[in-house]
Simulated scan of single mutants.
Amino acid sequence: MQGYEFRYGPHLISGPGAARRLAEVLPAGRSLFVTDANVRALGLADGVLAALPDPIVFDAVEEDPSRDTLMAAVAAGEGCTSVVGFGGGSPMDVAKLAAYLIATGEDLDTLWGVGKALGRKLPLALVPTTAGTGSEATAVTVITVGGSEKRGVNSPALYADWAVLDAELTLTLPRHVTAATGIDAMVHAIEAYTSARRKNPMSDMFARKALRLISDNLLIACDRPDDLEARGKMLTAAHLAGIAFDNAPVAGVHALAYPLGGHFHVPHGLSNALMLTHVLSHNMEAARPLYAELGAMLDPTSRDIGQQGQAQAFVQHLSRLSRAAGVPQRLSAVGIGPEHLDLLASEAMKQERLLVNNPCPITEADARRLYEAAL
């Protein structure tokens, strides 16, 4: 048995209404409350904000948050004693780095990459309002720089002190958001389970549990949006998938998804969903045994059809689930055409930190072919 390392950071608080407990755990003083305008408009943060003593609210976070947005949040939080990230992955990512930069005053450009942030951040609480990114569980944040390029900071210093899973906050999510973010979490689990780097028995355990929970509950959450139990299980699944990919990093699906967000502003979960089955088919030769394991787990009746059949059944199961949830299936549905293929393929090659984790190589020609298949 080979040795491995496994890490997990936050103190987890879970249950309906759990977000209202934030005021009990945060230190005295003013909090920087990082969110987005949509979350504010829906009133999801009202109860928490009312319980916090004089918070500073920064609600200008956009999808694929920019460096300028991050630095504006840092400026807004000067003098704060804690930071709360409340919303989807974008507000949580901004909150992580803001908590670090406010406390340390370090130059952001010295932090890109793995293990560069070595200082001590402000106390940080992360509260997801979607069941998808798992950002509340991870020590990585992704920021858009230069207009379209995504860069990451990955360091244990970014772990939240508290991760709060409150299913009540997800009850009003529209179906298309529930579907896309659920598929996003599914991609995290699958890519962690098949990652070429740092895959280990612990990450496998979290990935398998996450995948089973999503497979069993995604359509229930889509079809019965007020089902608190299904919503809670989806939040748990996204969190478990976050733990998994924080330790066994994601790969080709994410590498090809990022240019869709950076250049065409396709939401991250939908970007992953659009590329999922195409990349998995490309990986089939290298990852067949692992896909077969996951296929047999989700459908025990497939255990008698052999490894190839199990692996193919797994990919087909994911495709059916995505379609049933109502997720768009073609790049053309989000305004991407043949004229964009060269740009996308070239941009995907910049995601070296992700491509190195894929079970098999993805060349620029491969990327172009996969985008073409997804049109």
Rank of each mutant, 00 (worst) to 15 (best):
S302L: 14
A248F: 09
V315G: 09
G309N: 12
D109M: 10
G309Q: 10
I220C: 13
L344G: 09
L171S: 03
L173K: 04
V127M: 01
R368Q: 07
L341A: 04
T69C: 14
L26K: 09
D36F: 10
R120T: 15
L213V: 10
D246I: 04
S135Q: 04
I214F: 09
S66C: 03
D226S: 13
H340P: 01
H263T: 11
T69D: 00
L343C: 06
L158T: 02
T144L: 12
A255N: 04
E136P: 04
S155T: 14
A103W: 10
V153N: 02
D161K: 09
A73K: 04
A241Y: 04
F245Q: 04
L171Y: 03
Y371R: 02
K209P: 05
D64C: 02
V187A: 07
G105K: 11
P53V: 07
Y193C: 06
R224L: 12
R20D: 13
A296K: 01
E63D: 12
V94M: 08
I243S: 02
N358S: 13
V334R: 11
A185D: 02
G132Q: 08
A292D: 01
N358K: 12
M186H: 00
N272C: 13
A103L: 07
R224K: 14
L276E: 04
L290Q: 14
N358P: 03
A60D: 14
L44W: 13
R197G: 06
W162L: 04
L213Q: 08
R120P: 08
A196H: 11
T138I: 01
P16H: 10
A75F: 04
L52Q: 04
D184L: 04
P128R: 08
A103H: 10
A160H: 10
